[in-house]
């Protein structure tokens, strides 16, 4: 990322100084600026766009030397959000740092009452085999009127507005190559 340390730190430090003097009667501004700097000292900043609503607010994610997310905050340079974030956008940090995140591939066998952790290789091989089996069994070359339709009637997909543009395009390519017509997502509901 090409964002350099920018002047907004100085500006926010100065603003903080003004309010602090007003409130307490003595100058805490050096401590405020120091605290601001500590939070992101040695951190790398990365620009992103909020993942929630469609306003497209700018967010700066800070990571430490080990690549761990340590902070997220509004991007003051962004022309729509100008540094502001709502409650959701301001919580973006907790998406990255969250012990509830799914971290392993899970498999639930037919009639089972538990999840089992499995490897990516095993899961992807088995999903690919399922796709082929269902596609082969449900593929229709011609419809009842004898017109060529070349479609897979037995698989449907929903998703996803949560993906990036490139992933959305790639996903439709993947699904249409398999012959799916039942392709839907959030935009319909």
């Amino acid at each position: 990322m090409k964002i350099t340390r920018r002047t907004f730190l100085k500006i926010s430090g100065a603003t903080a100084a003004g309010t602090v003097i007003g409130g307490l009667g003595f100058d805490l501004s050096p401590a405020e600026v120091y605290a601001q700097q500590l939070r992101i000292k040695g951190a790398k900043e990365t620009a992103t766009i909020c993942c929630f609503c469609s306003v497209g607010c700018g967010i700066i994610v800070s990571t430490d030397a080990k690549g761990k997310v340590i902070n997220s905050e509004g991007d003051p340079d962004h022309p729509i959000s100008e540094g502001s974030l709502c409650a959701k956008g301001a919580s973006s940090y907790q998406i990255a740092v969250n012990s509830n995140r799914l971290q392993r591939v899970r498999y639930r066998a037919p009639y089972s009452d538990t999840w089992k952790e499995v490897s990516w290789k095993w899961a992807l091989n088995k999903i690919a085999a399922n796709i082929k089996k269902t596609r082969d069994a449900s593929f229709m070359e011609k419809n009842a009127e004898g017109k060529v339709v070349n479609r897979t009637n037995g698989i449907a997909s929903v998703g996803s507005a949560a993906m990036d543009n490139e992933e959305c395009w790639l996903y439709q390519k993947f699904l249409r190559s398999l012959g799916l017509n039942y392709i839907e997502h959030q935009a319909r509901i």
Binding site: T46, V55, V61, I80, I95, V105, Y107
Partner: peptide, 24 residues
């Protein structure tokens, strides 16, 4: 009584990958 075989795949969040999105 439920036959459905389920594969739950963990994916990356938006700040854990690169790409574009389009706002309204």
């Amino acid at each position: 009584k439920i036959k459905t075989e389920v594969f739950q795949l963990p994916c990356a969040a938006s700040m854990e990958k690169e790409g574009s999105i389009s706002n309204s």
